[in-house]
């Protein structure tokens, strides 16, 4: 807006304002009614849904999968869709930071004098696109299913061996699902991208080093030394079978 347009706006505005009604009591009455609606919704939701309290926090047995409040789903979903771990910093901090900077600076790059929505096609398109994208990501995040689930058939070699090998494999898969590894690791199609992809970890690491990671991991991975001996063995066995080309 140049100086003339500013002047014109201020003049137009002061006329509209002088034709209006005083804040008290007209706006105050509307605001008050709205406050009643807000209060009623909060009370209604509290009565309907209550406030559940899950089991006590336990840093050792992570049978729980991180679920943020639903309005953060879109952030977690951005993390899930940007897959390569090298891009994770971009997804987690980069994209939100850029969006935030764009939001902050909005009045400084959108400076045209026009305010009517139908005459601001670019701004409207960008705004509607943002809303649609956030709604879509939130929805995706909501239906992403229980994140502690590994959809993976036993590799041919394990299935063929049967017996104890197969039992250990299935049991190890169970332990992975219960321990919340998928919050940070990807195995097959499931899981997050905070930690390295474990789909082919069996080709990259020995059983001994896998066992070592579980007891003595690098932050932010929690330690799993509290797992029972047999569970840990099953888990390591399961991971060791995740070989390149085995599935």
């Amino acid at each position: 807006m140049n100086a003339r347009e500013k002047e014109a706006y201020l003049r137009e505005y002061s006329i509209l304002k002088s034709q209006g009604k005083p804040f008290f009591p007209y706006s105050v009455a509307k605001d008050g009614l709205m406050a009643v609606v807000v209060m009623a919704s909060i009370i209604g939701m509290s009565l309907l849904f209550g406030a559940e309290l899950g089991p006590k926090a336990d840093p050792t047995t992570t049978t729980y999968t991180p679920r943020p409040e639903w309005y953060f789903f879109f952030l977690f979903e951005v993390l899930r869709v940007i897959k390569p771990p090298s891009l994770t910093p971009l997804a987690s901090i980069g994209v939100p930071t850029i969006c935030m900077i764009l939001l902050f600076l909005l009045p400084f790059y959108d400076r045209g004098p026009e305010r009517r929505p139908e005459r601001r096609p670019i701004a409207m398109a960008a705004g509607l696109f943002t809303i649609a994208a956030m709604a879509f990501l939130t929805y995706e995040g909501a239906i992403a299913g229980s994140p502690n689930q590994v959809d993976m058939e036993a590799p041919a070699a394990v299935a063929a061996a049967g017996g104890e090998t197969l039992r250990q494999w299935e049991s190890g898969k169970q332990v992975v699902a219960q321990s919340g590894c998928l919050a940070c690791h990807k195995i097959g199609h499931n899981g997050g991208v905070l930690g390295p992809d474990l789909t082919e970890i069996g080709s990259a690491a020995s059983r001994a080093s896998l066992a070592r990671v579980l007891v003595n991991p690098t932050q932010p991975m929690p330690e799993y030394s509290a797992l029972s001996e047999s569970k840990r063995d099953d888990l390591v066995e399961f991971l060791a079978q995740l070989k390149t080309g085995s599935h």
């Binding site: 899950g54 089991p55 926090a57 991180p66 994770t88 987690s92 932010p220 929690p222």
Partner: peptide, 17 residues
């Protein structure tokens, strides 16, 4: 509780990346 603890652990870790 478990839910808040793990969600926040991961949330903080995400900040860390």
């Amino acid at each position: 509780d478990q839910r808040s603890f793990w969600a926040t652990t991961v949330g903080v870790a995400i900040n860390g990346t």
